[in-house]
Simulated scan of single mutants.
Amino acid sequence: MTGRQVRFPLSGQVSRRSMLAGAAAGVVAPVTATVLGGGTASAAPRDRGKPGDGLLRRVTVYAEELPSGLYGYGLQPGKATVPGPVLEIWEGDTLEIELVNNTDRRLSIHPHGVNYETTSDGSPLNDSFNEPGETRTYVWSTRAPSEGPGGFWLPGSAGYWHYHDHALGGEHGTEGIAKGLYGALVVRREGDPLPDRQFTVVFNDMTINNKVAPHVPVFEANLGERVEFIAIGHGNNFHTFHLHAHRWAENRTGYLQGPDDPSRVIDTRDLNPGDSFGFQVIAGDGVGPGAWMYHCHVQFHSDGGMAGVFLVRNADGSMPEGAQEALDRYHQHSGGH
């Protein structure tokens, strides 16, 4: 997932590896996939080479209808999830996505934060989508910061972005997004820290990952592990994302660059439709292991079920004192505070 061997599994988590390789005009990097508990997945090169190598990376994504009436993206046939797989590359890489539409509906894949031509826009406006049963290739490119006119600098592509459908049910993919066709897109810059665990949290109207408590994912990590949260907003409601007992810097990475870094340190941030951000925390740093809530801090949203649990186990993976009781309370009561 992150260019090194990641210590995934805790209980209820399963790892799998899928090699997707090809050759086109240079080096094409193979891809691995790791599927996590809670319906998140990751696709990233197994052998990243060096940041800035400008590799062409290829991945096949399958769009499928799920038994629940939702739709999802997956890295193998029959393995679609909500959210879809985390697509992750280095700044300077190009990502070629072969989207296989295994549904009977028109749909697409549209990115935020990267460069693409109109043919890879994923919108009906540019006649860029998959008909039912069709396979189509989308190409997204990234770049490092560069000096622009007048001494100003043009931004690079590094950041916590996202992708989603833009064609199912209308010109903007509103039905596709509502039914789960979305996922995280991470573009890293050389020197960025890599996480031990990675979780995607999507506030989609009045749901988290299209679920409400007590069915919202319980994310797990061991005390002291580096954990990355990728937060995405969809739908028509305005939200605030809050993580109990942990905080981060309001900048691109979530980390301070030094003791005098003026970035604001926060534990709550607006998460509105079309927005995305990410950050890393050390699990249980300064507070210890336990069951820590994450939720929307709009009160009637959390009361309505927009709340989940970040379970920080002991360093050896065992359950900390009181955590199971907290999980039992969560499954009996869906509210947050």
Rank of each mutant, 00 (worst) to 15 (best):
D316N: 10
T2A: 14
G92F: 03
A21S: 14
N251R: 09
E228L: 08
P132A: 05
G180K: 05
L271V: 15
D270N: 15
G290S: 04
G84D: 03
G122C: 03
A291R: 03
V86C: 09
T40M: 08
L181V: 04
G180S: 00
G304N: 14
D121F: 03
Q198I: 09
L256S: 12
D205T: 06
A315G: 05
G308Y: 02
L99Y: 02
W140P: 09
H297S: 15
R4P: 10
V6W: 04
R252Q: 14
D53H: 09
A33W: 05
A144H: 12
G336M: 10
D121W: 01
F219K: 03
G274K: 06
H112G: 09
L87Q: 04
V312D: 01
N314T: 05
D328W: 00
A24T: 13
T94C: 09
G191E: 06
D275E: 14
T60P: 03
W90D: 11
V218Y: 00
V201F: 02
P155I: 09
W90C: 08
E321L: 09
A63C: 10
G38D: 03
S120H: 02
Y163S: 01
D328F: 00
G191Q: 07
S42V: 12
T103W: 03
E325N: 04
W292D: 05
Y255A: 15
N130P: 08
S334C: 11
G49N: 06
Q13T: 11
L20D: 07
E134S: 08
L125D: 15
R197K: 05
N204T: 01
L168M: 15
E131T: 12
M306R: 01
G304V: 04
S123N: 10
V201D: 00
G156A: 10
L271I: 15
S15C: 11
G278S: 06
G235V: 06
N101F: 03
P77R: 03
V31R: 05
D93R: 04
D261T: 10
F300V: 12
V6N: 01
V216Q: 04
R4S: 14
D260M: 12
G159W: 02
Q198T: 10
E225I: 02
G22W: 11
P45V: 08
V61L: 10
S15H: 11
S128D: 02
A29Y: 06
Y163Q: 01
A178T: 05
F8V: 12
G156N: 03
V14S: 15
G284E: 05
R252F: 13
N236S: 15
D316H: 04
L10A: 05
V312I: 06
R329H: 06
S123R: 13
E228C: 08
V27G: 13
